[in-house]
């Protein structure tokens, strides 16, 4: 069996005095599409943000393609150098709820920044890759527009292109449609579905239950800092085992 591309082991995180993650274990193989669902405060976003070290964690380990993320395991647990962490971050791509596009750069500029400054590609190569991915998310025509000139759905698609153009091993999606007007949600979900169909490894935190059911290979239900249940979408949504999951599903529209 091939090594997992993402392996989270016994992840603990404390925020001030409150323990937000109480021992999370998660494993993903290449091409897996995993959705994480749960109520607010369950720790799902925090877990996602630990994977690309936007949050630090006190205990446990995260490995991407076998490499320890953020902290060295031996001889003692130490936080890695910032430059190393920056490099490790480029192994993942993250799409944010608030898009967080760079407002002072065009769509093309947003996508090429990482390629030029982090991957150190020469500009023509970077532009070619960027244009390919902008085309892929349907934003090629607006490549020279600024974020301020784009709708929410368009901005989020550019944000997806920005993340995926870096050729990450895992794509992280943090409730990427929660800040969108309802009529713009679908254009983003469709892009994500087609990327999943192409075999992109994805970890998604989402409230869109129908979408999670359709696109995921596995669904994870988190509750109070722990994974309560995980399994195939069929199992999770049609046949919930734990009581809290059943209650959660009852309260959400599915």
């Amino acid at each position: 069996m091939p090594a997992p591309v993402l392996e989270i082991t016994d992840l603990h995180k404390k925020f001030k005095e409150i323990e937000v993650l109480k021992g999370v274990d998660l494993s993903m193989a290449t091409g897996d599409v995993v959705s994480v669902i749960g109520s607010s405060g369950s720790g799902k976003t925090t877990m996602l943000r630990c994977v690309n070290l936007l949050e630090d964690f006190q205990q446990g380990s995260i490995r991407i393609d076998g490499e320890e993320i953020g902290y060295t395991a031996s001889p003692e647990r130490r936080r890695r150098k910032e430059s190393e962490i920056a490099r490790q971050r480029s192994m993942t791509g993250m799409v944010f709820q608030q898009f967080n596009l760079f407002p002072h750069m065009t769509a093309l500029g947003n996508v090429t920044l990482g390629l030029i400054k982090v991957k150190k590609l020469p500009k023509p190569d970077a532009v070619a890759i960027a244009e390919k991915w902008l085309e892929r998310v349907g934003m090629a025509e607006r490549r020279n527009h600024y974020p301020g000139q784009l709708s929410g759905g368009q901005q989020q698609r550019v944000a997806i292109a920005r993340a995926i153009a870096m050729n990450p091993k895992v794509m992280l999606f943090d409730e990427v449609t929660s800040a969108l007007d309802p009529e713009l949600v679908n254009e983003v979900l469709n892009v994500i579905k087609s990327l999943a169909a192409d075999g992109m490894t994805m970890l998604l935190v989402t409230h869109e239950m129908k979408f999670a059911y359709e696109v995921s290979r596995r669904v994870v239900f988190m509750n109070q800092g722990r994974i309560d249940e995980q399994g195939a979408p069929e199992e999770i949504f049609r046949n919930p085992q734990s009581k809290r999951l059943a209650e959660f599903l009852k309260n959400t529209k599915f």
Binding site: L54, A86, M94, L113
Partner: peptide, 15 residues
């Protein structure tokens, strides 16, 4: 917005 720094970090930019 804090998200700008985070977006920069997410694509691997150094400080």
């Amino acid at each position: 917005p804090k998200g700008q720094t985070e977006a920069g970090k997410a694509i691997g930019l150094t400080f």
